[in-house]
């Protein structure tokens, strides 16, 4: 490659990296775990190779097309044997180089693909992930039945500890993907898949279903909150407790609405008589930051709008519109807001 080609390739590469390096809570270029980190490193290597090849080919093509030529009266079929031979040599060498590069990248991919195998160990936390149309259910597996915590759409994990996610789907194919932590893995009916994630730093990482799963595929987000082990333990203990008794008349009225208007046919609030498991567990609903797998924020307004008309906020969602009067809705929101 000419020096000019090298310089251009480096420039292209630098620009591309600068563009892709922007962070975000759902960006694969802002890794916070060993698996995502290793993949990002591999990506940089591929990018450099790609930039060199793209630059080289483009320059060779443009030079070849635009270079000055001696004017002569050769016919189209007269070829110069010496330059044909030179071209054969160059092309053969480039094909060899291509093959060697490809082999190198294949081997590198093979080893990077085994990063998570090095994480596996006895300190693993095991969480069962069940994907539904269109929300996520998380259940911590534990030998003690009273420590099998079930929650929805937001999963807290301790920093520095590998978490083995067992992936299941009772309906259609979904795909679990939190780019900051690792690549994706499908949840397929009739199969059990696993993926290992680990966070190296505390933070909130967003992910969403990556396999088209029907009408509301776009609104099937999840969050992973990585926090220091002590903080995680506190969160876990708090989540295990049953829902708090409502404070004040408004919230108490709200609980009655919840238990009498149909909400309890699908949802569970531990500590009350609502024990259905068709929809997300709401025992600590207000401790989460989003509703309806990301379709609405966890605010009084978001909650009210979502309950009043789910089919507008998330058309096609399995949550039906339950007819409530204005005061009933206000009371219900007041109650749910207390479920920290």
């Amino acid at each position: 490659m000419s020096p000019r080609g090298g310089a251009t390739a480096t420039a292209v590469c630098a620009v591309a990296l600068a563009l892709t390096g922007c962070s975000g809570i759902q960006s694969s270029t802002d890794p916070h775990g060993p698996v995502a980190g290793a993949i990002y490193g591999l990506f940089i290597v591929f990018m450099i190779v790609a930039a060199i090849v793209q630059g080289g080919v483009t320059i060779a093509l443009l030079l070849g097309a635009l270079r000055r030529r001696r004017l002569d009266a050769r016919s189209v079929l007269e070829l110069d044997p010496a330059s044909e031979r030179r071209a054969t040599l160059v092309v053969s060498a480039l094909v060899g180089l291509t093959a060697a590069t490809i082999a190198g990248l294949t081997l590198l991919s093979f080893f990077v693909g085994r990063t998570d195998a090095r994480l596996a160990g006895s300190q693993e936390l095991v969480v069962r992930v069940t994907a539904h149309q269109w929300w996520w259910e998380f259940t911590f597996e534990d030998p003690a039945p009273d420590r099998q915590l079930t929650t929805a759409n937001e999963l807290h994990i301790p920093v520095g500890r590998p978490v083995r996610l067992k992936l299941l789907s009772p309906d259609v194919i979904h795909s679990f993907w939190v780019p900051a932590l690792s690549g994706k893995k499908d949840l397929i009916p009739g199969r059990l898949n696993e993926i290992l994630v680990q966070a190296d730093k505390a933070g909130v990482f967003r992910g969403q279903c990556a396999e088209y799963c029907g009408l509301q595929h776009a609104n099937m987000a999840l969050k992973i909150v990585a926090e220091p082990p002590a903080q995680f333990d506190r969160w876990f203990a708090a989540q295990l407790t049953p829902a708090a008794e409502p404070r004040g008349a408004q919230a108490t009225r709200g609980r009655e609405v919840f238990l009498s208007s149909g909400c309890a046919l699908c949802h569970r609030i531990r500590g009350t008589s609502a024990a259905a498991v068709f929809g997300p567990d709401l025992t600590h609903l207000a401790s989460r930051s989003m509703l309806a797998a990301g379709a609405a924020p966890m605010t009084p307004g978001g909650l009210g709008g979502w309950i009043a008309d789910p089919q507008t906020v998330k058309p096609g969602s399995k949550m039906p519109r339950v007819p409530l009067s204005g005061p009933e809705l206000v009371a219900l929101v007041a109650y749910l807001e207390e479920l920290k």
């Binding site: 290793a38 993949i39 591999l42 790609a50 090849v53 793209q54 483009t58 490809i102 990063t115 690549g183």
Partner: peptide, 26 residues
């Protein structure tokens, strides 16, 4: 030629299992 080389190079990326697991379906 210019566009196809580019598509081919990203094709090499998605052929790699770890990279594909990040960019698949994006």
């Amino acid at each position: 030629i210019i566009l196809f080389v580019m598509g081919g190079l990203t094709g090499v990326m998605v052929a790699s299992v770890p990279l594909d697991l990040q960019v698949h379906d994006t």
